[in-house]
């Protein structure tokens, strides 16, 4: 059980619905106004009722001032890594360092294939993800002289011109659950981004997953705290308690504080398309969890 000691971040997970047109943008503007740290959008380019996420992000970024933005998570099989890297870097420069990069290996292969993506087996998709990350970081790395060459099996670039360099080092947060993916995350990622509702073994899966990630990080010569632990969460505010994150704000504070101190989760991303819920999370939950965690860390360290 580890607290990796990261500063806490609080954000929302917004459905990028295309109708009403400005709905998702308004959620981002609200999060910005409420002082949340992060707004994230699903990325399912094969779904026609959604906006394209890497179009929505620049537009929403232009309408906000402080909040960080990312896809949660980017569908790599339908994005070309070098292009994605340029897109993230361009936006990072425009926003003064507010863009991060949530990445996923892809899951809905029928839909991906329908859109012209290549159907990959799970192992292949993981390799493709590793190659993609190598290309993305390579494009961002303008301090290394010469062109970028990555001779991958699924993604390849030969002598590509590097740049632009992002304004800050965007974190690459990867979603995934299976051991092999977790080892990859420990080896190359800046963060692990699972969704609580997909943890088949419940919250305890966080501890089991983190163990694999920590080991992988250490065998790659990294420190466990080089990999942030993020979590997508669903919840409901209610007068009485009905379960995990279903109850009054006090209960939320207690449960999220426990996640931070026991499981090392430092980024809490709430599924919310509801302004009332987002406001409650930003005002009643986030500051109190920060306080509690600060107090607990103060007494133990």
């Amino acid at each position: 059980m580890t607290d990796y000691g990261h500063d806490l971040m609080f954000g929302t997970f917004v459905t990028p619905i295309a109708q009403p047109v400005q709905h998702a943008v308004q959620q981002a503007v609200l999060a910005d106004r409420l002082g949340l740290d992060l707004v994230t959008f699903q990325d399912h380019p094969y779904v026609s009722r959604f906006h394209d996420t890497w179009t929505l992000i620049p537009y929403a970024a232009a309408r906000t001032e402080r909040v960080r933005l990312t896809a949660n998570v980017t569908n790599l099989p339908l994005r070309f890594p070098a292009q994605l890297a340029r897109s993230v870097a361009t936006l990072d420069r425009l926003t003064g360092g507010r863009i991060e990069l949530g990445l996923g290996a892809g899951g809905f292969w029928d839909a991906i294939e329908a859109m012209g993506g290549r159907r990959l087996r799970p192992g292949e998709a993981l390799t493709a993800l590793e190659e993609g990350v190598q290309i993305i970081r390579g494009v961002w790395d303008t301090s290394t002289p010469g062109g970028l060459t990555v001779d991958g099996k699924f993604h390849a670039v030969r002598g590509a011109k590097r740049g632009p360099a992002p304004a800050h080092r965007p974190s690459i947060w990867i979603g995934g659950y299976k051991p092999r993916m977790l080892r990859t995350i420990g080896t190359i990622a800046d963060g692990w981004l699972p969704s609580a509702q997909n943890l088949r073994g419940g919250i305890e899966d966080l501890a089991r997953g983190s163990e694999i990630i920590d080991e992988a990080a250490e065998s790659a010569g990294r420190r466990p705290q080089d990999v942030r632990r993020l979590l997508n969460l669903t919840g409901d505010f209610d007068d009485t308690s009905r379960g995990f994150l279903q109850g009054p704000p006090d209960q939320w504070v207690e449960e999220l504080t426990d996640l931070a101190l026991t499981y090392g989760t430092s980024v809490f991303i709430l599924f919310s398309d509801d302004p009332g819920m987002t406001e409650m999370f930003a005002k009643e939950v986030a500051p109190a969890v920060r306080d509690e965690v600060r107090k607990a860390r103060g007494t133990t360290s």
Binding site: Y59, A61, G163, P164
Partner: peptide, 13 residues
């Protein structure tokens, strides 16, 4: 260099 699509989407905003 800079990605035109991201730039034009930002300009839209």
């Amino acid at each position: 260099g800079p990605d035109g699509w991201s730039l034009v989407s930002w300009i839209a905003g």
